[in-house]
Write a protein that binds this DNA or RNA. Structure first.
Lengths: 121, 121
DNA sequence: CTGATATATATCGGTGGCCGATATATAGTG
DNA sequence: CACTATATATCGGCCACCGATATATATCAG
């Protein structure tokens, strides 16, 4: 692998579908909800992501409903999708851990008292 | 914000520079090391990332050295860079938390015993 | 000496994902 | 009648990624 696993929009869609099947517009709302309102998913992004995830077998069509004259197309996570989400979560968690370790080391270095000595010379 | 903060390659470069200044090739090795050998950073990616991070004031040139006839250009993290890395780590951690919560909920649903009732019909 | 490998820099162009804009349709509201 | 909300979908510009390529020095094998 190079640097990238699945993309962040894809990760968020998988997350939104992890607990139950949702339709497109519902995913948009769920992503906004689960991020505490910090992340909005543009619909122009959503359908491309959904197509790619479908092609990779990570999500699949669950059912179609008509609510008040409007079509709702529901998607659900596959087992492979759940596995991919879990694996990506582990990958990201490892990145976060590494960053925080080093950030902590940096903080310590910048606060290191003079008597611990050494210095650049 | 839409979905994306800083990119993953940028995140990894910032992480590699968090504890001490490093030169390009050294960053490549450090990313591989801190990821346990799972992530390799292509040099074609590195310099673009470094340029962008410099432009955003998240990293800056530390010094230049000549070791055995080869030029080494060292970069260091700025305060803004440390802040950006910390913020992005928090963002990713929140994503991971959300994914794992829902994944756990899904697992529970799929193992729910029959006597809890309902079911599809 | 020649070729291959490792270190070290940098550029370029193809590919692909993101997302704003746009289109279509129904329902409710001012 | 216009506007907003819900709901679908497509298209195209932009930009980041990264493989390929180029340049240069040091070392080692044949």
């Amino acid at each position: 692998m190079t640097a990238r696993g699945i993309t962040e929009p894809a990760f968020l869609v998988l997350t939104a579908l992890a607990d139950e099947a949702r339709h497109g517009y519902g995913i948009v709302g769920e992503v906004e909800r689960l991020s505490g309102g910090r992340i909005r998913m543009p619909v122009g992004t959503l359908y491309g992501v959904l197509d790619r995830l479908s092609g990779d077998g990570l999500v699949e069509l669950d059912r179609e409903e008509v609510q008040q004259g409007r079509l709702r197309r529901y998607y659900r996570l596959t087992e492979a999708g759940a596995g991919a989400l879990d694996a990506e979560a582990a990958r990201l968690a490892a990145n976060v851990r590494a960053a925080r370790e080093r950030l902590r080391a940096r903080g310590l270095a910048r606060h290191r008292p003079a008597w611990e000595g050494g210095g650049p010379a």
